[in-house]
Design a protein around this nucleic acid. Structure first.
Lengths: 119, 119
DNA sequence: GCGTAGGTTAGAGTTAACTCGAAGTCGAAC
DNA sequence: GTTCGACTTCGAGTTAACTCTAACCTACGC
Protein backbone atom coordinates (compact mmCIF):
# COMPACT_ATOMS: atom_id res chain seq x y z
CA UNK A 1 0.00 0.00 0.00
CA UNK A 2 1.21 3.49 -0.90
CA UNK A 3 0.39 6.87 0.60
CA UNK A 4 -0.84 9.74 -1.55
CA UNK A 5 2.64 11.26 -1.38
CA UNK A 6 4.34 8.11 -2.61
CA UNK A 7 1.93 7.92 -5.53
CA UNK A 8 2.48 11.60 -6.29
CA UNK A 9 6.23 10.96 -6.35
CA UNK A 10 5.99 7.79 -8.46
CA UNK A 11 3.59 9.20 -11.03
CA UNK A 12 4.92 12.77 -11.12
CA UNK A 13 1.61 14.28 -10.07
CA UNK A 14 0.78 16.67 -7.22
CA UNK A 15 -1.21 15.35 -4.25
CA UNK A 16 -3.81 17.98 -5.18
CA UNK A 17 -4.16 16.40 -8.60
CA UNK A 18 -4.54 12.91 -7.19
CA UNK A 19 -7.28 14.05 -4.83
CA UNK A 20 -8.88 15.87 -7.76
CA UNK A 21 -8.85 12.65 -9.82
CA UNK A 22 -10.34 10.76 -6.89
CA UNK A 23 -13.07 13.38 -6.54
CA UNK A 24 -13.81 13.03 -10.26
CA UNK A 25 -14.29 9.28 -9.79
CA UNK A 26 -11.15 8.23 -11.65
CA UNK A 27 -9.81 6.17 -8.73
CA UNK A 28 -12.57 3.78 -7.65
CA UNK A 29 -10.20 1.27 -6.01
CA UNK A 30 -8.64 3.65 -3.49
CA UNK A 31 -9.31 2.51 0.09
CA UNK A 32 -8.93 4.29 3.43
CA UNK A 33 -6.95 3.36 6.52
CA UNK A 34 -8.38 3.56 10.04
CA UNK A 35 -7.76 7.31 10.26
CA UNK A 36 -9.51 8.00 6.99
CA UNK A 37 -6.41 8.57 4.84
CA UNK A 38 -6.22 7.26 1.30
CA UNK A 39 -4.16 4.13 0.65
CA UNK A 40 -3.24 3.00 -2.85
CA UNK A 41 -2.80 -0.64 -3.89
CA UNK A 42 -0.53 -1.76 -6.72
CA UNK A 43 -3.70 -2.02 -8.84
CA UNK A 44 -4.58 1.63 -8.10
CA UNK A 45 -1.03 2.66 -8.98
CA UNK A 46 -1.28 0.82 -12.30
CA UNK A 47 -4.59 2.51 -13.02
CA UNK A 48 -3.12 5.93 -12.26
CA UNK A 49 -0.26 5.20 -14.65
CA UNK A 50 -2.79 4.33 -17.34
CA UNK A 51 -4.79 7.47 -16.55
CA UNK A 52 -1.62 9.56 -16.96
CA UNK A 53 -0.92 7.82 -20.26
CA UNK A 54 -4.40 8.59 -21.57
CA UNK A 55 -4.35 12.14 -20.23
CA UNK A 56 -0.92 12.86 -21.70
CA UNK A 57 -2.10 11.64 -25.08
CA UNK A 58 -4.97 14.10 -25.05
CA UNK A 59 -7.90 12.11 -23.72
CA UNK A 60 -10.18 14.42 -21.71
CA UNK A 61 -10.85 13.48 -18.10
CA UNK A 62 -14.55 12.91 -18.79
CA UNK A 63 -13.66 10.24 -21.34
CA UNK A 64 -11.16 8.65 -18.98
CA UNK A 65 -13.96 8.59 -16.40
CA UNK A 66 -16.16 6.67 -18.83
CA UNK A 67 -13.37 4.13 -19.33
CA UNK A 68 -12.91 3.75 -15.56
CA UNK A 69 -16.67 3.26 -15.18
CA UNK A 70 -16.41 0.39 -17.67
CA UNK A 71 -13.67 -1.21 -15.57
CA UNK A 72 -15.93 -0.97 -12.52
CA UNK A 73 -18.76 -2.58 -14.46
CA UNK A 74 -16.63 -5.70 -14.77
CA UNK A 75 -15.49 -8.28 -17.30
CA UNK A 76 -18.56 -7.93 -19.49
CA UNK A 77 -17.25 -4.57 -20.74
CA UNK A 78 -13.77 -5.74 -21.72
CA UNK A 79 -14.73 -5.76 -25.40
CA UNK A 80 -15.84 -2.13 -25.26
CA UNK A 81 -12.73 -1.18 -23.32
CA UNK A 82 -10.52 -2.86 -25.88
CA UNK A 83 -12.24 -0.83 -28.59
CA UNK A 84 -11.69 2.40 -26.63
CA UNK A 85 -7.98 1.58 -26.55
CA UNK A 86 -7.86 0.68 -30.25
CA UNK A 87 -9.59 3.94 -31.17
CA UNK A 88 -7.33 5.95 -28.92
CA UNK A 89 -4.28 4.19 -30.37
CA UNK A 90 -5.24 5.56 -33.79
CA UNK A 91 -5.42 9.04 -32.29
CA UNK A 92 -1.95 8.66 -30.75
CA UNK A 93 -0.51 7.51 -34.09
CA UNK A 94 -2.10 10.58 -35.67
CA UNK A 95 -0.42 12.77 -33.04
CA UNK A 96 2.95 11.14 -33.74
CA UNK A 97 2.64 11.86 -37.44
CA UNK A 98 1.68 15.45 -36.78
CA UNK A 99 4.59 15.78 -34.38
CA UNK A 100 6.93 14.47 -37.08
CA UNK A 101 5.59 17.03 -39.56
CA UNK A 102 6.11 19.79 -37.04
CA UNK A 103 9.62 18.56 -36.29
CA UNK A 104 10.38 18.73 -40.01
CA UNK A 105 9.22 22.34 -40.16
CA UNK A 106 11.35 23.23 -37.14
CA UNK A 107 14.36 21.54 -38.73
CA UNK A 108 13.73 23.44 -41.93
CA UNK A 109 13.62 26.67 -39.94
CA UNK A 110 16.89 25.86 -38.14
CA UNK A 111 18.68 24.98 -41.35
CA UNK A 112 17.35 28.21 -42.83
CA UNK A 113 18.95 30.15 -39.98
CA UNK A 114 22.17 28.17 -40.46
CA UNK A 115 22.44 28.90 -44.18
CA UNK A 116 21.70 32.58 -43.55
CA UNK A 117 24.53 32.81 -41.05
CA UNK A 118 27.10 30.96 -43.14
CA UNK A 119 27.56 33.25 -46.17
CA UNK B 1 -3.19 38.44 -50.76
CA UNK B 2 -5.59 36.24 -48.81
CA UNK B 3 -8.71 37.11 -46.84
CA UNK B 4 -9.15 36.02 -43.23
CA UNK B 5 -11.47 33.27 -44.43
CA UNK B 6 -8.98 31.89 -46.90
CA UNK B 7 -6.32 31.80 -44.19
CA UNK B 8 -8.74 30.13 -41.79
CA UNK B 9 -9.43 27.48 -44.41
CA UNK B 10 -5.77 26.96 -45.33
CA UNK B 11 -4.49 26.77 -41.76
CA UNK B 12 -7.48 25.00 -40.22
CA UNK B 13 -8.17 27.78 -37.75
CA UNK B 14 -11.35 29.72 -37.04
CA UNK B 15 -11.54 33.38 -38.11
CA UNK B 16 -12.08 34.13 -34.42
CA UNK B 17 -8.76 32.52 -33.60
CA UNK B 18 -6.91 34.43 -36.31
CA UNK B 19 -8.28 37.73 -35.04
CA UNK B 20 -7.36 36.64 -31.53
CA UNK B 21 -3.79 35.94 -32.66
CA UNK B 22 -3.67 39.33 -34.37
CA UNK B 23 -4.92 41.02 -31.20
CA UNK B 24 -2.18 39.22 -29.24
CA UNK B 25 0.44 40.66 -31.59
CA UNK B 26 1.31 37.39 -33.29
CA UNK B 27 0.65 38.70 -36.79
CA UNK B 28 2.64 41.92 -37.21
CA UNK B 29 2.73 41.77 -41.01
CA UNK B 30 -1.01 41.75 -41.59
CA UNK B 31 -2.11 44.78 -43.62
CA UNK B 32 -5.53 46.31 -44.28
CA UNK B 33 -7.36 47.05 -47.51
CA UNK B 34 -9.16 50.36 -48.16
CA UNK B 35 -12.24 49.26 -46.18
CA UNK B 36 -10.19 48.24 -43.15
CA UNK B 37 -10.33 44.49 -43.65
CA UNK B 38 -7.28 42.31 -42.96
CA UNK B 39 -5.28 41.05 -45.91
CA UNK B 40 -2.65 38.34 -45.54
CA UNK B 41 0.50 38.09 -47.66
CA UNK B 42 2.30 34.83 -48.41
CA UNK B 43 4.76 35.87 -45.68
CA UNK B 44 1.92 36.22 -43.14
CA UNK B 45 0.56 32.84 -44.18
CA UNK B 46 3.97 31.25 -43.65
CA UNK B 47 4.23 32.87 -40.23
CA UNK B 48 0.79 31.57 -39.27
CA UNK B 49 1.84 28.08 -40.32
CA UNK B 50 4.91 28.38 -38.10
CA UNK B 51 2.77 29.71 -35.24
CA UNK B 52 0.48 26.68 -35.60
CA UNK B 53 3.50 24.40 -35.58
CA UNK B 54 4.84 25.95 -32.38
CA UNK B 55 1.40 26.04 -30.75
CA UNK B 56 0.66 22.41 -31.66
CA UNK B 57 3.96 21.35 -30.14
CA UNK B 58 3.05 22.99 -26.84
CA UNK B 59 4.66 26.40 -27.00
CA UNK B 60 2.48 28.90 -25.11
CA UNK B 61 1.21 31.92 -27.02
CA UNK B 62 3.24 34.29 -24.85
CA UNK B 63 6.44 32.55 -25.90
CA UNK B 64 5.40 32.58 -29.54
CA UNK B 65 4.79 36.30 -29.12
CA UNK B 66 8.36 36.75 -27.89
CA UNK B 67 9.63 34.92 -30.96
CA UNK B 68 7.51 37.08 -33.26
CA UNK B 69 8.83 40.18 -31.51
CA UNK B 70 12.35 38.98 -32.33
CA UNK B 71 11.40 38.67 -36.00
CA UNK B 72 10.11 42.24 -35.94
CA UNK B 73 13.37 43.40 -34.36
CA UNK B 74 15.17 42.30 -37.49
CA UNK B 75 18.22 40.35 -38.63
CA UNK B 76 20.24 41.13 -35.52
CA UNK B 77 18.11 38.66 -33.55
CA UNK B 78 18.44 35.71 -35.93
CA UNK B 79 20.98 34.05 -33.62
CA UNK B 80 18.57 34.19 -30.68
CA UNK B 81 15.72 32.96 -32.85
CA UNK B 82 17.79 30.04 -34.04
CA UNK B 83 18.45 29.12 -30.42
CA UNK B 84 14.73 29.32 -29.60
CA UNK B 85 14.12 26.81 -32.40
CA UNK B 86 16.94 24.52 -31.31
CA UNK B 87 15.65 24.52 -27.72
CA UNK B 88 12.11 23.91 -28.85
CA UNK B 89 13.30 21.09 -31.10
CA UNK B 90 14.62 19.30 -28.04
CA UNK B 91 11.24 19.66 -26.39
CA UNK B 92 9.50 18.20 -29.45
CA UNK B 93 11.88 15.23 -29.47
CA UNK B 94 11.08 14.73 -25.79
CA UNK B 95 7.37 14.75 -26.62
CA UNK B 96 7.90 12.17 -29.35
CA UNK B 97 9.68 9.85 -26.95
CA UNK B 98 6.95 10.23 -24.38
CA UNK B 99 4.33 9.57 -27.05
CA UNK B 100 6.17 6.39 -28.00
CA UNK B 101 6.21 5.23 -24.38
CA UNK B 102 2.50 5.92 -24.09
CA UNK B 103 1.85 4.08 -27.34
CA UNK B 104 3.70 1.06 -25.92
CA UNK B 105 1.51 1.07 -22.83
CA UNK B 106 -1.63 1.29 -24.96
CA UNK B 107 -0.40 -1.61 -27.10
CA UNK B 108 0.32 -3.61 -23.96
CA UNK B 109 -3.21 -2.91 -22.76
CA UNK B 110 -4.72 -3.97 -26.09
CA UNK B 111 -2.72 -7.21 -26.21
CA UNK B 112 -3.79 -7.84 -22.63
CA UNK B 113 -7.45 -7.57 -23.67
CA UNK B 114 -6.74 -9.85 -26.66
CA UNK B 115 -5.13 -12.61 -24.58
CA UNK B 116 -7.95 -12.41 -22.06
CA UNK B 117 -10.52 -12.93 -24.79
CA UNK B 118 -8.72 -15.79 -26.45
CA UNK B 119 -8.75 -18.53 -23.78
C1' DG C 1 -4.33 17.32 27.25
C1' DC C 2 -1.71 20.17 24.02
C1' DG C 3 0.87 21.32 20.13
C1' DT C 4 2.22 19.83 15.76
C1' DA C 5 2.45 17.54 11.48
C1' DG C 6 0.11 15.25 8.65
C1' DG C 7 -4.20 13.98 6.54
C1' DT C 8 -9.27 15.26 5.20
C1' DT C 9 -13.30 18.04 2.77
C1' DA C 10 -15.94 21.45 -0.01
C1' DG C 11 -15.65 24.85 -2.75
C1' DA C 12 -13.49 29.05 -4.64
C1' DG C 13 -9.87 30.85 -7.72
C1' DT C 14 -6.60 30.53 -11.64
C1' DT C 15 -4.84 29.99 -16.27
C1' DA C 16 -4.61 29.40 -21.19
C1' DA C 17 -6.70 29.61 -25.27
C1' DC C 18 -10.16 30.36 -27.27
C1' DT C 19 -15.27 31.62 -28.32
C1' DC C 20 -18.93 34.44 -28.52
C1' DG C 21 -21.99 38.61 -28.55
C1' DA C 22 -23.08 43.34 -29.19
C1' DA C 23 -22.59 47.19 -31.61
C1' DG C 24 -20.72 49.47 -35.28
C1' DT C 25 -18.71 50.36 -40.33
C1' DC C 26 -18.27 49.49 -45.25
C1' DG C 27 -19.43 48.46 -50.10
C1' DA C 28 -22.46 46.59 -53.39
C1' DA C 29 -27.29 45.63 -54.96
C1' DC C 30 -31.89 46.97 -55.48
C1' DG D 1 -30.92 55.75 -49.70
C1' DT D 2 -31.70 51.69 -47.52
C1' DT D 3 -31.01 46.98 -46.83
C1' DC D 4 -27.82 43.18 -46.78
C1' DG D 5 -23.83 40.64 -45.80
C1' DA D 6 -19.28 40.63 -44.30
C1' DC D 7 -16.11 42.68 -42.02
C1' DT D 8 -14.55 45.38 -37.75
C1' DT D 9 -13.67 46.19 -32.40
C1' DC D 10 -14.05 45.53 -27.55
C1' DG D 11 -14.88 42.98 -23.93
C1' DA D 12 -17.37 39.36 -21.63
C1' DG D 13 -18.07 34.32 -21.23
C1' DT D 14 -16.53 29.48 -21.58
C1' DT D 15 -13.94 25.27 -20.79
C1' DA D 16 -10.64 22.05 -18.98
C1' DA D 17 -7.66 20.89 -15.67
C1' DC D 18 -5.90 21.96 -12.19
C1' DT D 19 -4.53 24.73 -7.80
C1' DC D 20 -5.32 26.63 -3.67
C1' DT D 21 -7.74 27.97 0.72
C1' DA D 22 -10.18 27.43 4.90
C1' DA D 23 -11.76 24.74 8.21
C1' DC D 24 -11.56 20.58 10.24
C1' DC D 25 -9.90 15.68 11.94
C1' DT D 26 -6.31 12.22 13.68
C1' DA D 27 -2.13 10.23 15.59
C1' DC D 28 2.02 10.93 18.00
C1' DG D 29 5.43 12.98 21.22
C1' DC D 30 5.95 15.42 25.38
Amino acid sequence: MYTIHEVAEKCDLSVHTIRFYDKEGLLPFVTRNKSGNREFSEQSLELIRLICCLKNTGMPIKEIKQYVDLIVEGDSTSGVRRQVMVDHRKEVVRQMNELKKNLNLIDLKISHYDSKHKH
